[in-house]
Amino acid sequence: MSEILVFCDKDETAFELVSKSREFAKELGATVSAALLGNGAAGKADDYFSYGADRVYVSEHSVLSDFYVATYADALQQIAEGEDVEFVLLGSTKRGKELAGRLAQKLNAGAITDANDVRVSDGNLVADRYAYGGNTLASVAVNTPKKVISVMPRTFEAGLREAKEGEVVNVDLDLKDPEVRVVERRDKAGDEVNLDEAEMLLCVGRGVQNKEDLEMIEELADLIGAEIGCTKTPASDWEWFSEERMVGLSGKKCKPSLYISIGISGQIQHTVGVMDSKIIATINTDENALMFNITDYGIVGDYAVVVPKLVEKLKSLG
């Protein structure tokens, strides 16, 4: 009987995958398992069972206390190789993606990353992912005996939990010391926000060059009840925002009713994250900006002038 093995460094994402894998398992006639690695792994087994895992593999091997990709890939290979594991579903977090390549290579498997939908078709899993930077959505399937697929967080919902028994397999792994050592970890400013659930979204791009101007943009966001998101530069380069607020191919995919872009050129890597907005409005000085091609209502103008006027108008409406 084939087995779907789930792993993610973030438990909430793993739960989403375990829940969904139950459905796949029914269609494929497979079982669902999960790998729990590192400190405190054993204690999580019941959570995984409650979302639908039939079995968990547990190792608290000392070298797993820090996530090093090659070590984790080694561990997962040892778990995935012996058994009937046909599918390995990973979370497409940063660690999940780097893991996918290593692990697939070790398993001689084909791999797909950043899947934003997965379904059963002809006894296999078919995944959708963006191609050509987001210009197209490709449906792809792995054709090797073992298959590695990493799925974007929040693609599926973690289902309802129910108390359930499962099998705990304590695995004895043969692992080397990591060749890459973590010297220090500097936490980023915490910023709890779920842009992917925002009803109203306002994004700022590289056109907004003065940090002080964020004030008027925040005022606008408050008035319409919008969350603030951004393109890559304000997050990665300027560090005005945490990457939780970055929207696009390597950031969040959002489905707001209203999305307003401010000073954003509309390159595909960003717009792929807002394609599903109901209405798109744009403020940009450049009438030829690509953003206008996917805009419903556009204003050609300087945000520094347009935004205050818009705030004024909205205030006057009360």
Partner: peptide
């Protein structure tokens, strides 16, 4: 920039 699969680097390292 087109695929953004992030697979090649890791697989190559392996």
């Amino acid at each position: 920039t087109d695929n953004y699969s992030g697979l090649v680097g890791s697989a190559l390292a392996e």
